[in-house]
Simulated scan of single mutants.
Amino acid sequence: MSKTIRLEKFTANDFLYYFQLVSDATVMAMITERALPQDEAERLFAEILANNTLHPYFGNFKILDALSGDFIGLAKLEISSVECEEAELGYVVLPVYWGQGIASKAAQILVDSAYKQPTCRKLFAIIDPQNLPSRKILLKNGFVSKEFKDFDGLSGEVLELIF
Rank of each mutant, 00 (worst) to 15 (best):
S134H: 03
D39E: 15
A12M: 07
V144C: 09
F61V: 01
A87V: 08
N131Q: 09
E88R: 06
D112T: 11
N131Y: 05
V92W: 13
P133L: 00
A75T: 02
K105Q: 14
F71E: 06
D112A: 14
Y17A: 13
V111T: 00
L54N: 10
L161Y: 08
K136L: 00
N141Q: 06
F10M: 03
A12C: 10
A75G: 01
K136Y: 06
L94E: 09
E8H: 04
V27W: 00
Y97T: 13
M30P: 02
N13Q: 10
D24Q: 02
E40D: 13
L7T: 06
A25I: 12
A25K: 15
L21T: 06
L7F: 10
S155N: 07
I127Q: 04
M1G: 15
I109V: 12
S68H: 03
R121D: 14
Y18C: 15
K146W: 02
N52C: 13
D128A: 09
G69Q: 09
A35H: 01
L132C: 14
K116W: 01
K76F: 14
D150S: 06
T26F: 13
A66P: 06
G59N: 00
W98M: 01
F124D: 12
L138G: 00
T4W: 06
S80N: 11
L132P: 15
T26A: 14
D65H: 09
V82W: 10
F19C: 06
V96H: 08
S155G: 10
E88A: 08
Q108M: 15
A35S: 00
A114R: 03
D24S: 02
P95W: 04
A106R: 04
L16G: 09
Q117N: 06
L89C: 08
L110G: 02
I102W: 04
G59P: 03
I48K: 09
L154G: 07
A29F: 09
E42A: 11
M28S: 08
I102K: 09
